[in-house]
């Protein structure tokens, strides 16, 4: 087990602040989606964080550790919660902008840049600890693919609404 630090410091504070700001933004924003859909969009972010942390971030080659130790701790689970509000915002803003479908690649690319910026911030604050030659550049295709898949979920939701199907 690798221990990076023992203190409640920058990484824990940034996760706490991220969660607080994220939830405040969600509650302050005017309502746009049915509640079930909002929860699903929120969980989409948490799920993606979990998915990659358990595929890229653990054995056989753990490319990164999260927070103070290589084992799991409470703040690791809380950190996945910060993905939820960001995912919600991704769906919310796309729905709000009402851009044409052909603008989607630009939108996904813009959000990929935002995610890379946030990951860089996380790395600087000690939330992420890269290993085995992993760098921020490897996250670039991961975000592009993940956000593209989220867009598929959004259009699936839209198609259900358009068909008047029960959601």
């Amino acid at each position: 087990m690798i221990v990076y630090d023992h203190q409640f410091n920058a990484n824990e504070w940034s996760i706490t602040a991220g969660l607080a700001v994220g939830f405040v933004i969600i509650f302050l924003l005017p309502k746009r989606f049915p509640r079930k859909v909002s929860w699903t969009f929120f969980m989409c972010g948490v799920y993606s964080g979990f998915f990659f942390d358990h595929s890229v971030g653990i054995e056989p080659i753990s490319f990164y550790d999260v927070n103070d130790r290589s084992t799991f701790e409470v703040f690791d689970f809380l950190s996945f919660g910060t993905y939820g509000p960001i995912a919600y915002l991704f769906f919310y803003i796309w729905d709000f902008l009402k851009w044409q479908f052909r603008m989607l690649p630009i939108y996904v690319f813009s959000w990929t840049c935002i995610y890379l910026g946030l990951e860089w911030l996380g790395w600087s604050l000690g939330v992420f600890h890269y290993q085995h030659g992993y760098t921020l550049a490897y996250s670039f295709p991961i975000y592009l693919i993940t956000l593209s898949l989220w867009s598929v979920l959004y259009y699936y939701f839209r198609s259900l609404m358009a068909r008047g199907q029960r959601i």
Partner: peptide, 27 residues
């Protein structure tokens, strides 16, 4: 369940099960 409910459950179930497994495996 409706499609959105099933998608939500799929996400939650994965997070719950994987969280439990991670603690049993890594910790």
């Amino acid at each position: 369940l409706t499609p959105m409910e099933m998608i939500f459950l799929f996400f939650v179930d994965t997070v719950f099960e994987l969280g439990m497994f991670s603690v049993l495996h890594v910790n």
